[in-house]
Simulated scan of single mutants.
Amino acid sequence: MGSKRYGSKAEYDRLRKAAKASDWIGANLRKRAWEALAVEVFGREQIEQARTALRGEADFEDAVDFEGAEFRYRVVTQPGVRLAGDPTVYDPPLAPGEIVEVELDFDGPDGARVVNRRVRLSRPNFPPVARCTLLDARRLDDPLGRLVADLVYSPEELEEARREADGREPEYIEFSVIVVPGQPNNIDLDPPLAVGEVIDAFLLVPFADAQPAEAQDEIEAYLALGEVECERVAYRQFPRKALPEGGVERFQGAETEEVSSERDAAMAGYTIIYEKVVGSE
Rank of each mutant, 00 (worst) to 15 (best):
E229S: 03
V75Y: 00
L151I: 06
E169K: 11
R118C: 02
D190N: 13
V129D: 11
G108F: 04
Q237P: 03
P79M: 08
Q78T: 13
R51S: 05
E40P: 00
N116M: 14
E281M: 07
G97L: 09
F66Q: 04
D59Y: 14
N125G: 14
T271S: 12
F238M: 05
D200T: 00
R236H: 13
A137P: 04
P124F: 09
R113C: 10
A69I: 02
A10S: 13
E101N: 01
R44M: 10
E275Q: 14
A36G: 01
T256M: 11
Q46G: 00
L134V: 09
V198C: 12
E103I: 01
L158G: 10
E275T: 10
R5H: 13
I178T: 07
M1Q: 10
V177M: 09
D23V: 08
R250M: 14
E281G: 12
R117G: 06
D209T: 10
A266G: 15
P184R: 01
F60C: 12
A53D: 11
V177E: 06
A38P: 06
P212G: 03
D209N: 10
A58Y: 09
Q46F: 05
Y6D: 12
S22H: 04
R131M: 12
R72H: 14
A50G: 08
G247M: 03
A38L: 02
V81K: 08
E229P: 06
I219L: 12
A165Q: 04
I178M: 08
D200P: 00
D200K: 00
I99R: 05
A265V: 15
N125M: 12
R118M: 09
V248M: 00
V205P: 01
T52K: 09
R55S: 10
E255D: 14
R232L: 03
S176D: 04
E48H: 07
V129A: 10
V102K: 01
D150V: 01
R113H: 13
L158Y: 08
A137L: 07
Y153A: 02
I273M: 08
L121Q: 11
E174S: 12
P127T: 09
V198P: 06
P170S: 07
V129K: 04
S260F: 07
P244W: 09
E262W: 10
L223C: 05
G85L: 07
P127F: 07
Q252E: 15
L135Y: 00
R123L: 11
T256V: 15
